[in-house]
Nucleic acid binder design. Structure first.
Length: 288
DNA sequence: GATGAGCGC
C-alpha cells in the first residue's frame, strides 16, 4: 500500500481561497442554532448579525423528502398512471402550515375583537368578585357569614321537613325553581352526630408542612410515605409556577388530627431521599 | 430556607 503523496491542497484551503464566508452556522449541544451573518449595511460598514434560534425541523430536509416522494412510481389502483395527482380522482388542497409557539399561546397578535371584549368587561366592572350570600367583596367560599347564611340561601324545596331524614334532593325541583345540588355540608343543620360534623370540611383539615424534601418529590411519594399513618386527605407539593420544579416543601393534610400528630412525630427528623425531613404543623394559608 | 391552587358568571 503506497502512501498517497500527491500534494493535494487541503479542502479547507480551497474554502479560504474563496471570498470571505457570508455566514457561519452551527448548532450547539443544547440544540441552539447560531447563525452569524456578515453583511454590508447602507453606510458601507461591515456588520455581523448573530441569530440564535432553537433548532427545529430543517426545512431543506423536509423538502428533499417530499421531492423524492414525488418520484415514486404509483401503485395500487393508480399503478401505471403518469406521475403527479390525477385531478379526476385527487383534490389538491392548499398548503397548511403548522406554526409552533410557546405556552399554548398564539404568536399572532390577539384578535382585536378579544381586546375590545376585555376592555368592555373591565369597563363594566364584570369579573369582580361578589359573594352570593352577603354581596360582599369576596368569594362565597370565603364569606364570614357562610355558616349562618348558607342555609338560608340554599334552602331545599320545602315540604318534607318533618321526616328529618328525607332531605335528599333526589326529586327534580318544580319548574321555575332551579334544581341545585346541595352538598351535605351545605344542607343546614342535620343535627349532631351526622357524618359531616363541623362547618368547613375542607379548609380546617389537620395539615402538616413538610420541608426539606428533594425537588423532585411528587405528591404520590408523600402520599405513600404519610399514608402509612392513616388516611391522607390531600397532598400539595410547592412548585415553581414556570418550571414545575419542586421548591422543597409540601403540605400533607390528614382526615384525623391525632393521625397527623403521630405522623409528624414519626417523620420529623427522619431521612428521606438523603435529606432530613422537617415536619411541622402548617400555618393557615390565609386569614379565615 | 421555604406557608398552597383554585373556585366565580
Amino acid at each position: 500500500m503506497a502512501t498517497e503523496t500527491v500534494p493535494k491542497t487541503s479542502w479547507a484551503d480551497d474554502v479560504d481561497e474563496l471570498e470571505q464566508p457570508k455566514t457561519e452556522d452551527f448548532v450547539d449541544e443544547n440544540g441552539i442554532r447560531t447563525t452569524i451573518e456578515y453583511a454590508v449595511n447602507e453606510d458601507g460598514k461591515k456588520v455581523k448579525i448573530t441569530r440564535r434560534t432553537k433548532r427545529t425541523l430543517q426545512k431543506s430536509l423536509v423538502e428533499h423528502a417530499v421531492a423524492e416522494h414525488k418520484t415514486w412510481s404509483k401503485f395500487g389502483h393508480e399503478k401505471g398512471n403518469k406521475p403527479g395527482p390525477d385531478r379526476a380522482t385527487t383534490t389538491v388542497g392548499e398548503n397548511v402550515f403548522l406554526k409552533l409557539s410557546q405556552g399554548n399561546k398564539s404568536s399572532e397578535p390577539e384578535p382585536s375583537a378579544e381586546k375590545t371584549m376585555k376592555a368592555t368587561l373591565a369597563k363594566a366592572g364584570a369579573g369582580k368578585v361578589v359573594c352570593r350570600l352577603c354581596k360582599g367583596d369576596h368569594f362565597t367560599a370565603k364569606c364570614p357569614y357562610k355558616d349562618s347564611l348558607a342555609g338560608l340561601e340554599e334552602t331545599p324545596p320545602a315540604g318534607n321537613d318533618d321526616d328529618g331524614e328525607t332531605a335528599l334532593p333526589a326529586a327534580p325541583a318544580a319548574p321555575g325553581a332551579p334544581s341545585k345540588y346541595i352538598p351535605p355540608s351545605m344542607r343546614g343543620n342535620r343535627g349532631p352526630g351526622e357524618s359531616m360534623r363541623g362547618t368547613g370540611s375542607r379548609d380546617d383539615l389537620p395539615t402538616l408542612r413538610v420541608t426539606n424534601i428533594s425537588e423532585d418529590t411528587q405528591e404520590n411519594d408523600l402520599r405513600d410515605l404519610f399514608g402509612t399513618f392513616g388516611r391522607v386527605a390531600r397532598v400539595y407539593v410547592g412548585r415553581d409556577r414556570e418550571t414545575g420544579i419542586g421548591k422543597g416543601f409540601a403540605f400533607v393534610s390528614f382526615e384525623d388530627k391525632a393521625t397527623a400528630q403521630r405522623a409528624m412525630e414519626k417523620t420529623h427528623g427522619r431521612g428521606y431521599d438523603s435529606l432530613i425531613l422537617n415536619v411541622q404543623w402548617s400555618q393557615p394559608r390565609e386569614q379565615k
